[in-house]
Design a protein around this nucleic acid. Structure first.
Lengths: 168, 168
DNA sequence: GCAATGTGCTTCGGATTCGAAGCAACTGAT
DNA sequence: ATCAGTTGCTTCGAATCCGAAGCACATTGC
């Protein structure tokens, strides 16, 4: 039996993808104008700014914003050149790099934040009631957590044992 | 007073971005393995396949998947090279290009679909109840429609006129 | 008509991406 | 200690992406 989706599921899926794309796109414009930041750069700064120490390991940052390691290396270099973050060797693990947001980084963050909030309010939240937002947060948080837990290793078709043929 | 977001709004926003990123990422892997398609390419084929005539104008296609025109030109060429779509001049408007999905395109679509559905079921819908999905579809559809209507022209900083009292 | 604008698509150049491969530092078993 | 396997990050090359500029057809106003 082919597990086909019904209309509602399809609708939820498309709406999710479309809504996030449209939102991301709009936010990107605002961030570019307000502080010359790409969306990822903003996410990185925001993540760091939110951390108690203002710093995180490269790998954790990459996982946090769902980005490739090599891509993060590139962005970290870019942000470092602009003086928005610093990169230092970790003391306990020689190969680990700790990225830390600078005061200037926080300044840029503070500069773009109001506009960012405004876009969210105008586009994402405008047509929603308080209850809607709570519901949305609840539902999405559940799937997000589920996806985070689920086999991070791509769509590795759970090939249990099947030693005989193995093909591939 | 800076229009700050409360915890719930922040949670909804982050969950939305994270969930869509994780889902997109997972789906991309599956599409790549199953039919060597990128996410956009799949979206384009799916959009065309869904159209009554199996064809659309370039511009409409771009708007539909939230993509730049130049980016779409690139993808359309790629898909055409692989024989999954054809591009023909429109008869009534000489400069308009009509993109049409081919039988082969539909075949690829059919080939990747089951796996696609499976990923959605495992990741997105697994932790949700039927009611959750309906609610999610309803809420996201509303914001999506709102965003579609709202000034497509970027984040044109609504240069109000210098409200005397400021402070929103 | 015909110039002035507008619209649809492509080209161009530069910026980002990612995966694969490479390095260096850790870990654990021998 | 030493070798094999892991883990953290970077480099490399190739694919994608976008905005600005360009080109050709369309539409409007005169």
């Amino acid at each position: 039996m082919t597990p086909s989706l019904d209309a509602t599921q399809l609708g939820a899926y498309f709406a999710l993808i479309e809504a996030s794309s449209l939102l991301k796109h709009a936010v990107e414009q605002q961030l570019r104008e307000a502080g010359d930041l790409s969306y990822v750069q903003f996410q990185l700064l925001a993540t760091l700014g939110d951390a108690p120490t203002g710093s995180r390991r490269m790998t954790d940052l990459a996982d946090g914003v769902v980005y490739s390691r090599s891509g993060l290396t590139y962005q970290a270099q870019t942000l470092e050149k602009r003086g928005l973050v610093t990169r230092t060797q970790s003391s306990d693990d020689e190969r680990s790099i700790t990225v830390t947001i600078t005061d200037e980084g926080r300044a840029v963050l503070a500069k773009v934040f109001p506009g960012h909030i405004a876009v969210l309010g105008d586009l994402l939240f405008a047509p929603l009631s308080r209850a809607d937002i709570e519901t949305l947060a609840d539902i999405l948080t559940r799937t997000r957590d589920h996806m985070r837990q689920t086999p991070p290793r791509s769509a590795e078709p759970r090939r249990r044992r099947k030693p005989t043929s193995a093909a591939e």
